[in-house]
């Protein structure tokens, strides 16, 4: 293992300390807990708060999407481990501006347990909550079991839309409806070409022989649909976009936003090579691409690989994507 770290056990806390020092004024810790970060101006009175969270190791997911026009707070655990229910609850209290709090996070068992427990704790304090789970990974379950899918990079779209809705003063029910609407209209699929190495164990999360790729991989290195020889960028794009077009039943005249996401160790150049073909395939089908995002939005430490996410757009969703937003890791400037 070669990593730029100090003591493995301090990896998460030292990473958060670095973020706070590098971006003063943007985020604050809740209490003294480095694992709970809120936007500096939270709670915003009268506006819905949005709390997200999950394991560390995915930056800019989850900590990177806290700020005006995005989430209000985040609770994180150790690498690939859930935050505790109490941390989620503390985040909830810190951002409740009297209009309730939306829990928006990826569909993973440990996270669901702790966020659900936090719902009960919040209710005891008379804070209303709603929950929407990111579940966009088409490789993790077939369409008919879409509610059981894992949440991966496509949750970015839900953050963006729900965050914009909360910022303009929508009610809790409306913010939750918008988040759910975006989630069910988002599909993602990824491939991995080299594994993640956990700082604490120093071991690769899975073995992948040279020259092979894992198709449909999750952001913790969960196995995908199958493993096969490494293909060209165009072949990979064809695979990923093909599965997404089928899943969302995209047809001539549909409008979409596209996110090509790097999993941590894949150069931006390669992501653009991938996007070139993604764009070609979608436009070839008559699909109109209204927004494109290329970069690292949800990573898995040093995993090499990429995912493609597509959000089917309508005017309402597009308006929310285009609304201003700001965090140390993401900025949308109003046109």
């Amino acid at each position: 293992m070669k990593k730029i770290i100090n003591e493995p056990g301090k990896f998460v806390d030292e990473m958060v300390q670095g973020i706070l020092l590098a971006h003063p004024g943007a985020l604050r810790t809740v209490g003294d807990d480095l694992r709970i970060l809120a936007r500096a101006d939270a709670p915003v009175s009268g506006k819905v708060g949005i709390v997200t969270g999950g394991g560390s190791g995915h930056l800019p997911l989850f900590k990177g999407y806290v700020g005006p026009g995005l989430c209000s707070a985040v609770a994180i655990g150790n690498v690939f481990s859930s935050p505790s229910s109490q941390q989620v609850f503390e985040a909830t209290k810190a951002v409740d501006g009297g209009a309730g709090v939306l829990y928006l996070y990826g569909n993973y068992g440990g996270d669901v347990l702790n966020f659900d427990l936090a719902c009960d704790l919040a209710e005891l304090e008379d804070i209303e909550t709603r929950t929407v789970l990111g579940r966009d990974d088409v490789a993790s379950q077939p369409r008919e079991r879409a509610d059981d899918r894992r949440g991966v990079a496509g949750i970015f779209f839900a953050y963006k839309a729900a965050g914009a809705a909360a910022e303009r003063g929508d009610s809790l029910d409306e913010v939750a409806r918008i988040a759910e609407d975006v989630v069910v209209n988002t599909a993602t699929m990824g491939i991995g070409i080299s594994p993640t190495i956990l700082p604490t164990t120093g071991k690769a999360s899975f073995d992948l022989p040279d020259g092979e790729m894992e198709i449909g991989i999750g952001i913790h290195g969960e196995p995908g649909i199958h493993r096969g020889p490494l293909e060209t960028a165009d072949q990979i794009a064809d695979r990923l976009v093909g599965a997404i077009i089928d899943d969302l039943s995209l047809a001539d005249g549909d409008r979409v936003a596209v996110l090509v996401n790097g999993l941590g160790a894949t150069p931006l150049e390669e992501l653009y090579v991938l996007y070139r073909r993604v764009d070609e395939v979608l436009r070839g089908r008559g699909v109109e691409i209204e927004r494109t995002y290329v970069g690292e939005y949800a990573t898995s430490l040093e995993m090499a690989g990429a995912s493609v996410s597509v959000l089917r757009l309508d005017d309402a969703r597009l308006e929310l994507l285009n609304a201003p937003a700001q965090s140390p890791f993401f900025r949308e400037v109003s046109a």
Partner: peptide, 26 residues
């Protein structure tokens, strides 16, 4: 019951404490 739940959840937070608090709330 709600007063018990709140006090128990916050005394020494843990998954167990949250589960018991949620049970009392329900």
């Amino acid at each position: 019951a709600k007063a018990c739940a709140k006090a128990f959840a916050n005394a020494n937070p843990s998954t167990m404490a949250a589960l018991v608090a949620g049970g009392l709330l329900a």
